[in-house]
Design a protein around this nucleic acid. Structure first.
Length: 730
DNA sequence: AATATCCGTATTTTT
DNA sequence: TACGGATATT
């Protein structure tokens, strides 16, 4: 904020720097000497820790800050993570008990990485007892301990977004909505409306008008479904993602629990604060005890989760919510070269920023961002592959290169091309492993064991059995008393014990497999001691489920391989409860997570959605599909806010790059790839790449290079081949 | 009542 | 694409 004398803004942004880093290196030395003196001055006799010396004055201020709540506005690549980890280490070093520190992050992975780094500073085992994780994961943990204050039993189960959509659907079927003439919102839409309503803390009518206007006419039916949905959840002792936060907030508002909660932590730290919503801000306020430490870190220019009701207002209005809060800024970018940063800054010039800040770099490097226009997607894939290999030849491992894109499927043709050229890669984001039908099936089996009153799981599992459809499934559930709710059934029986006693009615055709099913379930539930291990359960369910997979799904082999993989993962868990809740709160993030480690030993290229790339950095970054309609997504063209967010998405992508940044735009898109025709449309270069931005970049066009014609044909053919392969490989 | 088949359609981003 | 939903068949 205050312009410091040592800030070498203009001087070091000179376009041409010696490649050997000499100039920047010397400046760094001088700066470090300044820090050294300050460490010695301010800590008065205390040993100047080595890690403190590596921080710049602003970072140090954040690390050493004591007193009122503070918001750290940290630009991209400004050492945000470094600062947070150093602060955790410093707090522990100063005598704060680790278990009295709460570190809230955006993903569980981020928490683990940060704590591992803090441990390297603070010493082995020091960070082990720190509370770290996402809001949702921490809520899960707290509610299992203190939930009783809200009469929430500790053995509740958590359901993910698609589970709640399934429950919506179950209720909708029961109420016979959608059978009339007017079309009624589908289950995903219902779940989305519900979630938006909760996270924005807005009335149903307002949410419908504002975000789902085409559903506004069905408000009565929607309300009825929500009512029943909520009731069902309560009866079954199931919490959805939103409930985790709602209950946590409620807990902070409960007189007897409130004091306990605010007394739990001496220091709360929150990462990626720009992507939290008002509900989460409420929670933070509810957890805050006057005098205790609170630090939130974020960058309003990187807010890209408003679709999840995240609100930039949280970070912008931090001082309003926590009066007396101070604001610190980190504006020195250590990541990117000046040309990359200049282009990124130019992009953000288009938006009005509330926390005015200008990032500056002291890195060496004069390579301009390349803006590449391609004929079509095939040429784009081909060009990216070649550049990746070229960089590798120059000594940049695949691992430090990444291809980024707006949506999960934007990489599909590239994946084909990479496979064809034997370039190994790992893809983050857009992976829907947990969404796959067979994975959900197996989890439903396990969750019945965990919570025998879970209607959605029973409904799902029963219908898998041969000869049982919706009608029979509902009848069986009736007979077992699944609907009895969370109330203890007479004589401690559950639907599972009754499975053995009641002989529920099923059609003759279903008899055999239903009996198998009963045997397996009772075996898992009763025959394996108190807490059946998840791996054991999966093994027992195996034969029955294999039969089901082979009957019901295509490509049963690859699906079965997934199930076996799940069995391996389950081997690491002692209880089914832990396994299931871990999987719903922290699903595997990449294809690599699933395949286990063998792939990770190798060098591999990273493919990632821009959202999943948040917080990461690479030497070389290739952004593909930078065409209007992709970035910005044409879903977001409606309003100004949506457009602003899309711009920030591109900004996040650009600022991931250290040395090399290339942005690709295919100009021609084929609509129907299955047909023999070549119906196509023409795209425009993304509207965000304005003249101002272009002037700071090097523009390249591959559209009329005759030499590339051959290569492009090659690329196109490979796309066709992939298509054919898919046809006969099933 | 369950299952097979066909057709149309919509499709971000994630805890 | 792949999935959901509607219709036809067993």
């Amino acid at each position: 904020m205050s312009p410091s004398a040592s800030r070498p803004k203009k001087a070091l942004r000179a376009p041409i720097q010696p490649r050997n880093d000499e100039g920047a290196g010397r400046a760094q030395l001088i700066l470090e000497r300044v820090f050294d003196e300050r460490v010695l001055d301010e800590t008065e006799g205390a040993r100047p820790a080595r890690w403190l010396r590596e921080l710049n004055p602003e970072q140090r201020a954040a690390v050493l800050h004591d007193g009122p709540p503070v918001v750290v506005v940290a630009g991209a690549g400004s050492g945000k993570t470094k600062t947070l980890t150093a602060r955790v280490a410093r707090l522990i070093d100063d005598g704060t008990a680790p278990e009295r520190i709460l570190l809230l992050t955006f993903t569980r992975r981020a928490a683990q990485e940060m704590l591992a780094r803090a441990e390297r500073i603070a010493g082995p085992g020091a960070t082990h007892r720190v509370w770290g994780g996402t809001f949702h994961a921490v809520a899960n943990r707290l509610l299992r301990i203190y939930g009783r204050a809200l009469s929430l039993p500790p053995n509740f189960t958590v359901m993910d977004a698609s589970d709640s959509a399934d429950l919506m659907d179950f209720v909708r079927g029961e109420q016979r909505r959608g059978e009339g003439q007017t079309r009624f919102p589908r289950k995903e839409t219902l779940a989305a409306i519900y979630s938006a309503m909760v996270n924005r803390n807005e009335k149903l009518g307002r949410v419908l008008d504002g975000h789902f206007p085409w559903c506004a006419g069905e408000i009565t039916g929607i309300r009825a479904i929500f009512e029943s949905y909520t009731k069902r959840k309560r009866e079954q002792v199931v919490l959805d993602y939103d409930d985790l936060l709602l209950y946590w907030r409620a807990l902070t508002e409960t007189p007897q629990a409130s004091a306990t909660l605010t007394g739990l932590f001496d220091h709360v730290l929150v990462d990626e604060y720009q992507d939290t919503n008002t509900l989460q801000a409420d929670i933070l306020e509810g957890m805050h005890r006057p005098g205790a430490g609170l630090m939130v870190v974020g960058d309003d220019a990187q807010a890209i989760y408003s679709f999840r009701a995240a609100s930039v207002a949280n970070i912008l209005n931090f001082s309003a919510r926590f009066p007396g809060a101070s604001v610190l800024k980190l504006e020195h970018n250590y990541r990117s070269t000046p040309p990359i940063l200049d282009a990124s800054n130019a992009l953000m010039e288009q938006a009005t920023r509330a926390y005015g800040k200008e990032l500056w770099s002291t890195r060496a490097g004069d390579r301009r961002t390349r803006l590449v226009t391609c004929l079509d997607e095939a040429q784009q894939s081909d060009a990216v592959c070649r550049r990746v290999l070229e960089q590798r030849e120059e000594g940049m491992p695949l691992k430090s290169q990444a291809v980024l894109f707006r949506t999960g499927h934007h990489s599909s043709l590239l994946e084909v091309e990479l496979a064809r050229r034997n370039i190994p890669f790992v893809k983050f984001g857009g992976l829907k492993f947990m969404e796959a039908a067979h994975v959900k099936d197996l989890l439903a089996f396990l969750r019945i064991l965990e919570n025998p009153f879970d209607e959605v799981c029973w409904f799902r599992v029963l219908r898998l059995l041969e000869g049982i459809g919706p009608a029979s499934a509902r009848r069986v559930m009736e007979a077992l008393g699944v609907r009895a709710g969370g109330r203890p059934a007479p004589f401690g029986t559950t639907p599972i014990t009754r499975l053995d006693q009641e002989q529920p009615p099923v059609p003759a055709a279903a008899r055999r497999q239903f009996d198998d099913f009963c045997a397996v379930i009772t075996d898992c539930a009763l025959g394996a001691g108190d807490a059946p291990k998840p791996a054991v359960c999966i093994e027992r369910i195996g034969p029955l489920y294999k039969e089901i997979v082979e009957r019901l799904y295509d490509s049963p082999d690859s699906r079965w391989a997934d199930i076996e993989q799940l069995g391996v993962i389950a081997g690491g868990y002692a209880t089914t409860e832990r396994f299931v809740s871990d999987l719903t709160l922290d699903p595997p993030a990449s294809t690599g997570d699933l395949a286990g480690s063998p792939l990770l030993d190798d060098d591999y290229l990273v493919l990632s959605t821009i959202h999943s790339a948040k917080g990461c950095e690479w030497d070389a970054v290739y952004i593909i599909h930078a065409a209007d309609g992709m970035i910005p997504s044409d879903m977001a063209l409606g309003d100004e806010d949506g457009l602003d967010e899309e711009r920030r998405v591109l900004y996040v992508a650009m600022t991931r790059a250290r040395d090399v940044l290339e942005i690709y735009t295919p100009l021609r898109y084929y609509h129907r790839r299955t047909g023999l025709d070549d119906a196509h449309g023409y795209a425009q270069v993304s509207r965000f790449l304005t003249q101002d931005v272009k002037e700071l970049c090097e523009s390249v066009s591959l559209t009329d290079e005759p030499a590339d014609r051959v290569v492009q044909m090659d690329g196109e053919r490979s796309g066709v081949d992939a298509l054919l392969t898919r046809l006969w490989a099933g």
